[in-house]
Amino acid sequence: MIVFDQVQKSYQVGGRAIPALHPTSMTIETGEVFGIVGHSGAGKSTLIRLINKLEPATGGRILIDDEDITRYSSADLRAFRRKVGMIFQHFNLLSSKTVADNIAFPMKLAGIYSKPEIRSRVEELLARVSLSEHANKYPSQLSGGQKQRVGIARALACRPTILLCDEATSALDPQTTQSVLKLLADINKELGLTIVLITHEMDVVRRVCDRVAVMDAGRVVEMGPVSKVFLHPQHPTTRDFVFESESVDRDELQEDLQKAEGRILRLTFKGESTYKPLLGSVARQSGVDFSILSGRIDHIKDTPYGQLTLSLVGGDLDVAMRALEAADVHVEVVR
C-alpha cells in the first residue's frame, strides 16, 4: 500500500519556490493498477518520481507498506529501490549492453544474486516477454515495442512489489501500445504487483487501470474507480480527457443536440446490460420514439459498457425512464 500524506513538492527557481505538487493525500492499494492522468506539466511526472524518491518530497510523508520512505538513508533507499521497478517513455535501456545484459543489470547492481541465479532469471524473463530469440541483440536492433518489453523484463528482474510506468506507451504506435498494456495487465494479475502508471491518454487508463487520479496544475482534481470517473466525469479536465479519448468533437456534438427534437437522455450501460435488447422493448412499453445521436460500446478493463445519447419524442417519458432504470441503466437527462 502506498500512502501519500499531505505530500508536496516545489522546485527552487531563482530563489523562489515553484510548486509542482500541492499538498496531496491519497492511497494506492496493494495489487491494484492505479492510473494518473494529466496534461504535460500537470505534475504527474513529479508525483510518480516521489514514490521511488528520484525526486525528494519537500513536505509530507510517503508511507510504503507502513514505512516512511521520505526518511530513508541513502543505503535504505537503494535497497528499497530494488523492490520498485520502473519503466520509461523512452525505455532508457543501456545501448552498450545486450538485451540479456540489460535485464541482468539490476540484479548485478544488487550484488546478492549468484551468476547461475541471474542467468536462469534472465532466461525466464526473456520467455515471459517473448524475446528469448533476441537475447544477444543490442537495443538499437529492436523495435519500440520490443524495447519496452525489455524495459519491463528489466524492471521485474529483482521481483519488485511495485511497478512504476512513466508514460510507458506514449512513444509506441496504437497496436504496440495494446500489446504492452496487455502484458502489464497480465503481469499485474499473475504477480499481484501494484502498478502505478502515468499517462496523458485516457484510453490507457480505460484499458488497464482499476482506479484513476486526474491531475491538473499540480493538484489531483478527481479520483475514483475508472468506471465512475470515465463514465461520469465531474471535473472539466476529466471531461476533456474523456471526450478526447472518444474522439468526440464537442462543438459538433452541441450542434447535433441543438437540432434534435424532444428530450435528450444519456444512457450508460455497464456489464451484462450492455448486450440486452432493451431500447426496443422500452419504446414499445412507453410509446416513446427515439433516435440515436451518438453511441459507443467498449470495455473498461474487462467490463463491457455502452453509452448512448438519445432524443426521445412522444409517449410516456416517465414510464420509459423507470423501465430503463429497472434494467440497471444509468439515465442522465441532458435536456
Partner: peptide, 29 residues
Amino acid sequence: VDRGIIEATQAMGANIRQIIFGALLPEAL
C-alpha cells in the same frame, strides 16, 4: 549520455560508483 539512462540506473538502486562504472563509462565509451 542520455539522462534517462542515469535516472533508470538510479531507479534500480545503484550507488554512485555503480552508476559511473556500470552505466556512464560503458555508454560513453
